[in-house]
Amino acid sequence: MVLKRQPEAGDILQGTLDLLILRTLVMGPAHGHTIAQVIERTSENALEIEEGSLYPALHRLEDRGWLVSEWGLSENNRRAKFYQLTAKGRKELDAASSRWRRMTRAIGLILGDIPGEAKEEA
């Protein structure tokens, strides 16, 4: 009897996190810690990366052939695993970011200005 598996934690965000990782690596190879820092800093700390789910995502992307990895020396002179975008990953990034833009635009159109909505930064 095959029991249905619980949805994995972070499944909802998975697509988004993948997109952010791919985007970050456009700037060049980086190891996990750098990737997390770059995403947090670039988003002006609005997005806090759950580091625990960063590594599963990296491994998943590598299995799909969007990234390749290699052990090397980091800026701190420590061993670290550097990830680099592949051509396939680059193509996926383009496709995913345009999907993302279409979707946010669509959601934005629907939301518009909601009457009577309290301003967020009160």
Binding site: H31, H33, T34, E51, N76, A80, K81
Partner: peptide, 20 residues
């Protein structure tokens, strides 16, 4: 092999995080 690799990778992450 991949699990051992990940373990080392996580060690490395912690070291970098601590450095920072």
């Amino acid at each position: 092999r991949k699990d051992a690799d990940l373990a080392e990778e996580l060690e490395s992450h912690l070291a970098h995080s601590q450095d920072m």
